[in-house]
């Protein structure tokens, strides 16, 4: 439990029981934003962003207000307080998969972009964040950095949402910089982040998918690394750790094979305060530690493309 987490307020995991696995390759049925410009981050980080609504009312532009009325939620506090997918899914600009039709009024992405220009951007992403232990640890370490967890299983992401909400409530002014998105990060990363946006990406104890025919489901592959490299800033760091040796070797081999990633030296890793978190910040990590299992970690830097390389 993180400091500031009181037992009484915390959501209890047993009410969020989820299936052990979700197939990341099957069709999904949650809303996905059309592009990063369509996301209203103020719903995730109200302390950091003006919501388009607030910016709007400052302008006192009634005509405009009319056109964005879809966004108006009666209980404004509610919408501002939660960092949830629920709020996100109320966002009319999100595509509800195939049933996205023009009868849903699209929020003008340029409006959101205007409001959010010059505002902070999410720069850490924890992929397959599970119950969110890493985010909770990172939050006080980097209080001015926005970070999101991405989780495919809806129950688990709901747990993380409730956990963050409880933390914010119990610790006014804190934990405002972390949030959770329920999505398939293998498919929809580009819908959330712009090119070069992320400084850190985490892949902690990803599902191993042992069987060879299921290797395509692994969250790290040479092909997917191209997409991760795309959303990462040059110089950004990608962290992976696993207790499955075969998967550890696989992830290292993929990273070595990719020209846009380069291993971070062990001296440098020692100086990085985040590296020490990999083993025990998350629920999965703690489980492995309790069983005193081995871990295999790889820490790589996103490098610029050398004209020779690619």
């Amino acid at each position: 439990m993180a400091p500031g987490e009181k037992k009484s307020q915390q959501p209890r995991k047993r009410f969020y029981r989820a299936r052990a696995h979700s197939n990341p390759l099957s069709d999904s049925h949650f809303p996905v934003p059309i592009s990063p410009a369509h996301i209203d981050w103020s719903l995730h980080f109200p302390a950091f962003f003006k919501s388009p609504l607030e910016a709007e009312s400052e302008k006192i532009d009634l005509m405009h207000k009319e056109s964005t009325s879809d966004l108006e939620v009666n209980d404004k506090e509610f919408s501002r307080d939660c960092c949830s997918e629920e709020c996100v899914s109320k966002d009319p600009s999100l595509n509800h998969e195939a049933d996205f039709m023009e009868n849903v009024s699209v929020k003008n992405p340029s409006e959101v972009a205007n409001v959010q220009r010059g505002q902070p951007k999410v720069s850490f992403a924890d992929i397959g964040c599970g119950f969110g232990g890493l985010l909770v640890k990172l939050s006080p370490m980097f209080p001015d950095t926005l970070m999101v967890g991405m989780e495919l299983r809806d129950k688990v992401s709901e747990y993380v949402k409730d956990r963050i909400m409880a933390l914010r409530k119990e610790n006014p002014g804190q934990y405002q910089n972390i949030s959770i998105i329920r999505t398939n990060a293998m498919k929809y990363l580009q819908n959330y982040f712009q090119k070069g946006q992320l400084q850190k990406m985490f892949f902690l104890f990803p599902d191993p998918h042992f069987k060879e025919r299921n290797h395509r489901r692994r969250v790290i592959s040479v092909a997917l690394l191209a997409e991760y490299a795309h959303v990462m800033a040059v110089g950004g760091i990608l962290y992976t750790i696993t207790d499955v040796q075969d998967l550890g070797e696989w992830m290292k081999a993929c990273l070595d094979a990719h020209p846009l990633f380069e291993e971070v030296s062990s001296q440098e890793q020692e100086l990085d305060p985040v590296v020490t978190l990999l083993k025990r910040a998350t629920e999965e990590g703690q489980k492995v530690e309790r069983n005193s299992g081995d871990t295999f970690q790889s820490v790589y830097r996103r490098v610029a493309s050398s004209s020779a390389g690619c």
Binding site: Q190, N191, A226, E227, A229, H230, H258, P259, L260, S305
Partner: peptide, 8 residues
Amino acid sequence: HEIEGFCL
């Protein structure tokens, strides 16, 4: 291995 961009 290098993606220039996504047209979304």
